[in-house]
Design a protein around this nucleic acid. Structure first.
Length: 527
RNA sequence: GCCCCUGUGGUGAAAUGGAUAUCACGACAGGCUUCGAACCUGUUAUUGGGGGUUCGAAUCCCUCCGGGGGCACCA
């Protein structure tokens, strides 16, 4: 719908200005509105209102619009004709599951990798991991719906210092060496050490190996929690050990940097000129002790992604990685993935008994993500996180979350779906021609309009990753449907009208299902 | 000290520089002989302070005040 208006406007505007058309939030302002006359006012040196009036007169001839009004200082308010909306309704029913999704030509289609969670397998997942996980999962869905090829990646840091530290923590927990401050203190460490005492004893002189064994175990738990319980999916668990180090991407990356002339030696260490790419200082790739840094491994990881044919990568990180962003972006650009993005989700603070409870993996203080989804259901947790912009700092009160979980707005949306499905099931009617022009009441029109917005919402989300707009849209659509239900009857009216309204209800079910599906929220038929 | 995020009804949030700032929860008052009341209707309140840019600012700029996070030849 927006596209139609844009085209109609551009046809009448010779100037090269950005034409904005937005969904009118207030019904009094029509269905869509544009502020283009304000933009033109400057260029043409004319009053916006005058320009708007000229445009409205000409636009009123287009049959798609029932009305094009000038309002305020020069806004153009568009009211779509019933016919256009009814036509879109048919389209929804025809496309069904595919409604809202796009198909792109090979030339336009990109191969995008979305990396999320990637928590170190040194313990259970935190709430912040869950937040990033739901977000990444949804972003991947949205990009796929926008027609791109998407890979969902979990990058496993299964080598290096952390794994060693985990091994040492286990050996210390079993009492073979003294406990040090830097070790992992969580219950899970102790539990594993006690449950596997003979293994710990056997490898007490090889913390790397022991850490690796435990990491495997924790990774299995993580996989179960996210895939089976939370419904967060991955296409690939990339192993730092096997896929990056094992396939020589450390060396390959170093070679590439040398070729490109972006690395140099100083003070016995090897540096990457990340300052040329917006970082505030250059970063070390290989220390003067000749050990590769973690950053080098990450750069190698990016290179590996590039070599596997990706056009860009979207990485979702927690707030503790903020300082890492600019160097990662620099590395991405250097290895040939310049349009890659890093999205930082802000902190999830845990509140208990009105006080902040600090979460820390090392100290072993946290509420696990698994605990959350068991208490409030995966759908509710997912919807809750995806309702909020990643930039928002969240205070999360677990006790309150449990208590409030029944009031979670996700049920409002799911209930709308259940209602729609139930109506379709209960309304018996002989097949016949449907006359969609009968859908003319305020509620009918408003619902049709909301339905037709879905592709636009999806398109916007694919552009700016603002997943929470989809969530908000779902609630708006649900409300439009509940309102429709309250005012209009589907069954028990004239056959012709029943068929028409049934089409509308059917289309609502389709869009709700598709929209919730993109978020990864289920659509039960009963509640 | 420097950098990033942030301050919106009692509470939690929303708002590509657009109009009368939108939801949910809570509270209060109503609504089921009919397709599922996990629903609907009504009442309640306001962008931290001060400047500036703009036809137009919650949004951009400056400044002050408050909250969160980050600033290693660690991972």
């Amino acid at each position: 719908m927006r596209e139609k208006i844009l085209i109609a406007l551009k046809k009448r505007i010779p100037e090269d200005v950005r034409v904005d058309v937005s969904i009118a939030e207030n019904k009094a302002f029509g269905h869509y509105s544009s502020n283009v006359s304000f933009k033109l006012a400057k260029i043409r040196n004319k009053a916006p209102r005058e320009i708007a009036e000229g445009l409205s007169l000409s636009l009123s001839n287009e049959k798609e619009f029932e009305k094009v009004e000038v309002a305020g200082g020069g806004f153009l308010n568009f009211r779509l004709s019933q016919k256009v909306l009814a036509h879109e309704l048919k389209d929804i029913l025809k496309k069904a599951d595919a409604y809202g999704s796009k198909k792109l030509s090979k030339a336009k289609q990109k191969k995008i990798q979305v990396e999320y969670i990637s928590a170190n397998p040194t313990g259970p997942l935190t709430l912040a991991n869950g937040r990033g996980g739901f977000l990444g999962d949804a972003i991947a869905n949205v990009l796929a719906a926008a027609g791109h090829k998407v890979e969902r990646e979990y990058y496993v840091n299964d080598t290096g210092n952390q794994v060693r530290t985990l091994g040492l923590s286990l050996i210390a927990s079993a009492g073979f060496i003294p406990f040090e401050e830097t070790f992992y203190k969580g219950e899970y460490v102790k539990d594993w050490a006690l449950a596997n005492k003979t293994t710990v004893k056997k490898f007490k002189d090889n913390p790397e190996h022991l850490g690796g064994l435990a990491a495997n175990h924790f990774l299995k738990l993580i996989k179960t929690a996210i895939e089976k319980k939370a419904g967060i999916h991955f296409d690939r668990y990339t192993s730092e050990k096997n896929d990056v180090h094992g396939k020589k991407f450390i060396e390959k990356a170093l070679e590439l940097f040398k070729e490109l002339g972006v690395s140099y030696e100083k003070d016995g260490a090897l540096w990457l000129k990340t300052t040329d790419y917006g970082d505030d200082k250059d970063r070390v790739l290989v220390t003067s002790e000749k050990t590769p840094t973690y950053f080098l491994a990450d750069a190698g990881h990016y290179f590996e992604t590039k070599v596997r044919g990706f056009d860009e990568k979207i990485l979702i990180l927690g707030p503790d990685h903020y300082g890492y962003v600019s160097r990662i972006q620099a590395a991405a650009t250097i290895v040939g993935l310049p349009s890659s993005k890093v999205i930082i989700t802000q902190a999830v603070r845990l509140i208990r008994g009105g006080k902040e409870a600090k979460m820390s993996k090392r100290k072993g203080l946290f509420v696990t993500f698994q605990e959350l989804i068991e208490d409030v259901s995966p759908d509710a947790a997912r919807f809750f996180f995806l309702m909020i912009s990643p930039d928002t700092h969240m205070d999360f009160d677990l006790d309150l979350a449990k208590e409030k979980s029944l009031k979670n707005p996700v049920f409002y949306a799911q209930y709308a779906y259940v209602r729609a499905v139930s109506i379709i099931k209960k309304t018996k009617i002989k097949k016949g021609k449907e006359d969609l022009s009968l859908l003319g009441s305020g509620e009918d029109i408003h619902l049709m309009l909301k339905l037709s917005e879905f592709p636009e919402i999806l398109e916007d989300a694919a552009g700016d990753y603002a997943i929470h707009r989809i969530t908000k849209y779902i609630l708006e659509l649900s409300k439009a449907f509940h309102n429709f239900y309250e005012k209009e009857r589907v069954g028990g009216v004239d056959d012709e009208l029943v068929r028409a309204r049934l089409a509308l209800v059917g289309a609502t079910a389709v869009v709700l299902k598709n929209a919730l599906g993109v978020l990864g929220v289920s659509t039960p038929k009963k509640m």
